[in-house]
Design a protein around this nucleic acid. Structure first.
Length: 170
DNA sequence: GCCATGGCTAGTA
DNA sequence: GCCATGGCTAGTA
């Protein structure tokens, strides 16, 4: 079989969050979470893969997803670590790949933060560290990480030591 | 091809 | 400054 079949475990989202009017991205995310997801591993499958918007995924994006998949629960990594580990791309190209991640949360893009320890962005939203106005998606990213035991300050910075930053390739 | 656009970062101040 | 994408031409066939 060319495809790794994976049934995603439903996260226990807070009812209050689900009750609120959901943005498109949010409802997509929720739907994806409760469904099973096929993550193609074979080159041929990957070349023909189309997102539900009909878009293809580039080789670089697949490489980013493969790496991000290996980040364990309870850890995070940074955009910089990802591109260094790949030996290609830039922190920005990693961010671009992740904002379009069609495999969330199987590919746990919420576990990638800025190298300063700042929470960074989520599905196209970005909180400025200098003016930390909470955006809804980013709030959600923090909630997801909290559920995994990773905590952030009220200014949006990672709490705890460097050991929380995942560096390995598996 | 060209050019603008980012979920960034290193290096100043 | 970085560099992969994506939208758009221009130029070929």
């Amino acid at each position: 079989m060319l495809i790794e079949k994976t049934t995603l475990v439903s996260h226990s989202f807070k009812r209050s969050a689900l009750k609120n009017k959901e943005t498109d991205a949010e409802s997509d995310f929720t739907t994806t979470t409760s469904r099973s997801c096929s993550y193609p591993l074979e080159e041929t499958e990957r070349r023909t893969f189309k997102t539900k918007e009909g878009k293809a995924i580039t080789a670089h994006q697949w490489a980013v997803y493969d790496f991000v998949r290996t980040i364990p629960v309870g850890k995070v990594t940074t955009y910089k670590v990802v591109c260094s580990a790949l030996g290609a791309g830039s922190p920005r190209s990693v961010g671009t790949a992740l904002r379009n991640n069609p495999f969330a949360p199987f590919v746990p893009c919420h576990r990638v933060i800025a190298s300063t320890g700042y929470i960074g962005g989520f599905f196209g939203e970005w909180n400025s560290p200098t003016n930390h106005a909470q955006r809804k998606q980013v709030q959600r990213k923090i909630e997801l990480l909290n559920q995994e035991g990773v905590e952030f300050t009220d200014k949006g910075y990672l709490m705890g030591g460097k050991e929380i930053i995942w560096q390995e390739t598996n």
